[in-house]
Structures are given as structure tokens and as C-alpha cells.
Design a protein around this nucleic acid. Structure first.
Lengths: 243, 243
DNA sequence: GCATATTTGTCCGTATGTATA
DNA sequence: CTATACATACGGACAAATATG
């Protein structure tokens, strides 16, 4: 994990806009604790790229804009830190996490392990349960047709989330959720989302057809290659955007 | 996850003893934040069985005994809740987690996925790196010889931790750490730790020898059976202790 | 290298809402 | 149903560490 040295933060002022909106949204929704709701708001904004990696989140300012006490905000920070979306540096504050190449390799390593194993376990699967996957593949194809590559990326994410969901394991879902959230961190700042996401519209469709046919072993092998390719292309993309 | 209805808590008063000891230990050690240190102390005590599943942890009392503010304690609670060792019920407080049978099945599912995949990946392994595994196997054998079954269980845990550590993946280590901590929760209250742990002294040795011989595929298969057996025996054990 | 301003880390007191005897 | 206990959340305070000039 990179140390997050400086604060780019042109976004801090820009952030104030959606934050005040989010602050109201927060109070309307939700029956959970305030800290959880604050964490939800921040998580979404980080995932959607409103808060870029490396940005520092000042306790004072954010407590003020979100209209919660610093203590409550700190609890939310802890949650997100534990999820890997924020990094906490003692006496310096919290920053949106920046993933280096080693992180990406590590992340894909665990992702391959889990996703491929889930696919291999899908023998005797009720085809009805593939419905959500069908929908996401279609959504991805539609988004690609209109050139909305961010939407393609989102559909792709959701495809994989539903895929591992077929295992019916709470802990696997949780770990995957975290991995995908971290992954989105790496997507922001990539110059060409098209190059990154477009190839996988077709590959998701192919994977899905293997699952429909019940060819779990071939699907698993295919998925392994898929994820290897995805990793190398993402590494290329982030290398490109740094240069 | 079971809802943790009542508070057995004969341990709350008994807890006060080691807690005050832990409070001092806490201030001596550590350069991290207070919340982290509090979490460390509580985590260890939960894992070592001083705080049994279902026990309620009162904010007021624990803040007093550990001599930290309730805010700091709450931050520690959030961390442990996120790790699955505590469960948080809104407006009721936090309790040491109780795992039901579905949790154990779920837990072993992910555990098999990760450990077997790590073993399969250990081709071209420098045999030197198996040294820590050797040590834990020996420690387990020694503990078995003197009938210390808790120590056998501990050595067993450490064996598996070192095993997945060979993958060199931070995220895999983290997930495994969490899984093993949750697993220990289930061990407490089992009537016969011997029946639970003894069989795996030999099986760890056998597994290790396959790894030394570089037979990763056979080792992975063997480990899969191993973990299946471990799961069923643990389920039997907890069923036995509930009846 | 030093002095100052800012921010984090931690604690306390308190008010409100929720659950339980 | 009332009363009590407790969790939740807030705001203010101060020390300690860090960043800034």
C-alpha cells in the first residue's frame, strides 16, 4: 500500500456539494447507526470516484459538512479503513487508499482463487439462478452499444458479484464485496475505460453460456484466463496513467 | 449468526482480574492508537476463551476497567465487530459472537477454498520455507505427548496460518486470520478437546511430508479431505456440548 | 532549526432514545 | 405502564503530534 503522501484535493471543495446533499439523504434513510450511515455515504462516494485515491479526509471539515460529531465520523473512518478503502496514518489522518501494483496482483490472486472455486462448485445448478447474470450481461452489452464504458464497468462488477453469490456463502460474499470495492479504486484515473472494460462484454457472455451448459470445469478454466488477462490489462492501464 | 439473547456472564466479574492486568500491559506496549491496542487486548481474550460466546460487553464497565473513554472503546468494538468476533445489536450493545452450524459450514467452505488453492500453488517451493511448519508440527506432537490438548489446538492453528502464509499474499493472510479467530470461538465450550484436536497431529505431519516431497496436488487433495473431516467432527462436538 | 498554527487523539459531561425488569 | 439502566450521539476541552512559515 502506498503511503499517500500529499493531498491533491481539488475535490475537497467540489466535495462539499454532494456532501451536503448526502447529509440530508443520510438522515432520511436508514434505521442503522449514524456511523454506519456515514460509512455508507463515504463508501459510495469513494467507489464512484468522487473522492480520488490519495485524498485526505479532514475530521473537522467532514464532521461539519456531514453534520455529525467528530467521534461518530471517526467510527465511520475505522470501518472504511478496515475495508481497505481508507488508510489511517497515526496523527496524520485518513486518506483514500492508493493501490500500488503489488496490491493489484495480490487482489487478483485472491479473486481468482475465490471466483474459480465458486464456478467449479456450481454442479447441479438450477438454471433459474443464472437469471441475474443474464441481466447484467445484457446491461453490459447495451451500455457498450451506447459507448457508456463506466456503465459497462459497473455491469461487469455486478456480474461477478452475482457469480460468487451463487455459492450462497455469506463470508465469500463479504470478501468479494471488499475485493471489488478495492478494485474500483484502481479504475479511477485510468485514461481509457473503454480499453479496460470493452473486452469483457463478450467474455462475460461466453462464460455465462458455459454455465448454462453446465460446463463448470471449462468455465472455471476460462475464468482463470479471463482474470489473468484482466489483471495484466489493468496493470498496463495504471502504468500508462502514471506516465 | 445467532442473536445472542441472554448474558451468561459469570465471567464479567472474573474478567475484571485479567482486565486490570491487561490495562497496564496495554499502556506499556504499543505505539499504535489506543483503540487498536484495546482491540488487541480484547481480541486475544476472546480467542483464548476468557470471554465466552454470548457474553455481553458493557461499554461502561469495560471503559472503566480498561481505563479508556467510552469513545475509544466503541472504536475498538467496531473493529472487532467487523472481524466477526463481536456482534453489534443496535441499542442493546455488543456480545461475543456465537457461531451456529450454518456459520461453521460457511467458514469451512471458504477455508477449504483458500487453503487448498494455496497448497496447489506451492510448486517450486524453497524447502527452507517449510521450517516454521516443521516447528509447529513438532510442537503439536510434544503437546499431545503431555496431554495438553489446548496447546495441540494452538499449534494446529499456527500450522495452518504458516501454511497459507507461504502464498505471500497480504489479503489471503488477513482473511485466514479472521477465519481462524472465528473458528476458535467455536472451540470453546467443547467438552472434549482431545477428540477434536488429537487426530490432526498425525495428519499435519503427513501433509507436511507431502509438501516436502513437492507433491502439491496430492497434498491439496489430502487437505480437502482433512478439512471436511475436521468440519464434521467440529459439528458433532458442538452438537454434543449443546445437548 | 525554531516557533506557531493546525489537526489528530483522547477524555468527559450530558441529553436523548431504546430496551427490559 | 412505569421506572431504571444502558446505548447512542453530541459538543467541548486539552494534550500531543504534525505541518507550516
Amino acid at each position: 500500500m502506498l503511503p499517500a503522501r500529499e493531498t491533491p484535493s481539488p475535490s475537497l471543495d467540489a466535495a462539499a456539494e454532494w456532501l451536503s446533499a448526502a447529509a440530508e439523504e443520510m438522515w432520511l434513510l436508514g434505521r442503522s447507526s449514524t456511523a454506519e450511515r456515514v460509512a455508507d455515504v463515504l463508501r459510495r462516494r469513494i467507489i464512484e470516484g468522487d473522492l480520488l485515491p490519495g485524498t485526505r479526509l479532514s475530521e473537522g471539515r467532514y464532521a461539519e459538512v456531514l453534520r455529525v460529531s467528530r467521534n461518530t465520523l471517526r467510527e465511520a473512518f475505522r470501518l472504511l479503513t478496515h475495508e481497505g478503502l481508507l488508510v489511517h496514518e497515526l496523527h496524520r489522518g485518513v486518506f483514500v487508499a492508493e493501490l500500488d501494483e503489488a496490491d493489484l496482483v495480490d487482489l487478483y490472486r485472491l479473486r481468482r482463487t475465490i471466483e474459480c472455486d465458486v464456478v467449479r462448485s456450481l454442479t447441479d445448478l438450477d438454471p433459474t439462478r443464472l437469471r441475474p447474470l443474464q441481466d447484467e450481461v445484457s446491461a453490459g452489452e447495451a451500455a457498450a452499444k451506447r459507448g457508456d464504458w463506466v456503465a459497462v464497468g459497473t455491469a461487469n462488477m455486478r456480474f461477478h458479484r452475482h457469480l460468487v453469490g451463487l455459492a450462497g456463502s455469506r463470508r465469500i460474499d463479504q470478501v468479494t464485496e471488499r475485493l471489488l470495492a478495492e478494485l474500483r479504486l484502481a479504475f479511477h484515473g485510468v485514461t481509457s475505460p473503454q480499453r479496460l472494460h470493452e473486452p469483457y462484454v463478450k467474455r462475460n457472455r461466453a462464460l455465462l453460456e458455459l454455465l448454462v451448459a453446465g460446463e463448470t470445469e471449462r468455465a472455471a478454466k476460462r475464468l482463470e484466463d479471463y482474470l489473468h488477462d484482466s489483471q495484466t490489462e489493468l496493470l498496463d492501464a495504471v502504468r500508462g496513467s502514471h506516465a
